[in-house]
Nucleic acid binder design. Structure first.
Length: 374
RNA sequence: CGACUCCGAUGACUCGUC
């Protein structure tokens, strides 16, 4: 039975829900553990409805782990309200429950301080997981001071918390501190190494990115793709060499390669890369569109925009600012009005477009119409 | 008495800020 439980878990990690369910059904007397494995399998494979059915009336008994699994399912789906409701009904909680709530609420735009107070400060206990969630969240918000404050108070550190701290330093532009923290880490793994390469890539330091890449003991697609991006950004023209040397490529590497070509003004090759990509993605189309905008070829950008099967919020925002840069304020405004879900970037883009078109009065008007902050 | 199942860190695109 234990082996079969393990099998369910393995299939779930491969998103092969049918196989996972089949293994579960082959167990004649499933244990509580088996039921949890099945529940987690549904969650991992994004079958929320089945997970809920299993949780509500499938499993003979539920333990904290089952509750936590459902909590995190809702939280990662962005349904913090449902998660909170469930949290309130729990007969007993564990640290993982509090951490799941913390993670869900800091990632889904609720008031950060309230989330922290409710699920971290007021939690019965805290561990490295909860602290890492906070450090990472502060890093993402660019709040180095608060990240450090949490990090420095931790009783002990692990790879995850240290990697988050490396990101926090790098995000604040403190490259020396970031590398120092990296060297001070208790251990390193693939993720922390990848993070370091990404830090250098983001900073435009191709040489450092490459050096880190060659020092790491092993690589995955993500490491390689990050290096391609570093080359694309640094403009060294070596992106192609890296790309060709990759053992396997994914959407990101293809997109990075295309971007490198576009930035090197090799538009024909960039176009060819776009067409040869095995999978198309909205991001790749956005990158292509943006290349046109940067070259002042707005007609091509618009054509691409109209032809895109899917548009993300980024697509809409990029189009608004593309029109703005071209001085086509009416089109910028029309695109903004047509944007399905406006975010802070949309509003800033609109204000900037007005500014670029010399309509200073409208800049002010836009700011006063903005829903909130930014 | 342990082990297994639940929570945290890594890559691409848009405005502004540094």
């Amino acid at each position: 039975v234990r082996l079969l439980n393990l099998l369910i878990d393995m299939y779930a990690k491969c998103s092969s829900i049918e196989s996972a369910v089949a293994v579960f059904q082959s167990i004649e007397r499933p244990s509580r553990h088996s039921w949890n494995c099945l529940l987690v399998a549904y969650i991992r494979c994004r079958c929320l409805a089945e997970a809920k059915a299993t949780f509500d009336h499938g499993m003979p008994q539920r333990c904290v782990i089952s509750w936590n699994a459902m909590l995190s399912a809702y939280a990662t789906a962005g349904r913090v309200g449902s998660a909170g409701e469930l949290f309130g009904k729990m007969p007993a909680t564990s640290i993982a429950s509090w951490n799941a709530m913390l993670s869900g609420s800091v990632h889904n735009g609720y008031c950060f301080d309230r989330a922290r107070a409710a699920f971290f400060d007021r939690a019965p206990e805290r561990n490295t997981v909860g602290c890492s969630i906070l450090v990472a969240a502060y890093a993402a918000r660019g709040d180095l001071r608060s990240a450090r404050c949490v990090f420095d108070r931790m009783p002990e550190w692990d790879i995850v918390s240290s990697t988050a701290m490396v990101q926090a330093y790098a995000g604040a532009g403190r490259l020396e501190q970031a590398t120092k923290e990296f060297q001070a880490m208790p251990q390193r793994n693939l993720v922390s190494w990848n993070a370091l390469v990404a830090v250098h890539a983001h900073h435009g330091d191709t040489a450092a990115a490459r050096a880190a890449f060659h020092r790491m003991p092993c690589h995955d697609v993500l490491s390689w793709s990050t290096l391609v991006l570093a080359c694309a950004r640094g403009g060294g023209g070596d992106a192609r060499l890296v790309f060709d040397a990759m053992p396997q490529r994914d959407v990101v590497s293809w997109t990075g390669m295309m971007q490198a070509l576009a930035e090197a003004e090799a538009m024909d090759e960039a176009r060819a890369a776009f067409c040869r990509m095995p999978q198309h993605s909205t991001v790749a189309a956005n990158v292509a569109m943006q290349s046109y905008v940067r070259r002042g070829e707005l007609g091509d950008a618009v054509r691409l925009f109209q032809a895109m099967p899917e548009r993300s919020p980024v697509t809409w925002n990029a189009m608004v600012s593309g029109y703005g840069q071209a001085g086509l304020m009416d089109q910028a405004r029309a695109t903004f009005d047509a944007t399905p879900s406006r975010d802070t970037v949309s509003w800033n883009a609109l204000a900037t477009a007005y500014y670029q078109c010399g309509r200073l009065g409208m800049v002010e008007a836009t700011f006063s119409r903005m829903p909130s902050r930014g």
